[in-house]
Amino acid sequence: MTTSTAAKYGTARRAVTVRVNGRHVTREVSTRTTLADFLRDELDLVSVHVGCEHGECGCCTVLFDGLSVRSCLMLAVQADGHAVETVESLSANPAELHPIQEAFAEEQGLQCGFCTPAMLLRTKEIIDAGREMTDAEVRHEISGILCRCTGYQNIVNAVQSAGAKLRGPTAGGRD
């Protein structure tokens, strides 16, 4: 390492400022800390569930600058200056659920709850995109998040039901 590189990049820890669920937070982190571990360990956002740490299960999905990403496949330092949303951005209060969370409760689109925060965030992204989808399209759109409990059927129902509620009483879309 040259002296100038060492001076600029030699540090193993850095301060990062991230807008998390609408609020700016600043923490000093190790440069190798994954975004998932940062959210869980530094910010106590334990809703970010770590299931595989190699980007295949999808349980750690968060919204990064509004787009769903796997937080185990990013470094915390990469979030500096960016916005992250976790499921707490919907509602962190079990007594006042967001309509998407309500739909999952009503349709029982969850069993053990481990993939649930990821599914909820992905559902938000799908609904925010505004387009009605067939059930088969919903299945394709959530295929990046593994659920081992439900066989997905009630999750698909919940996504559709939440979409219908949030988009208002428009026609069809189911197949």
Binding site: V46, P94, A105, L110, T116
Partner: peptide
């Protein structure tokens, strides 16, 4: 069981 799970507070071992 669901409300706590829906807000990401399942109380899992890693938490």
């Amino acid at each position: 069981e669901d409300p706590r799970l829906l807000v990401g507070r399942g109380g899992y071992i890693a938490d």
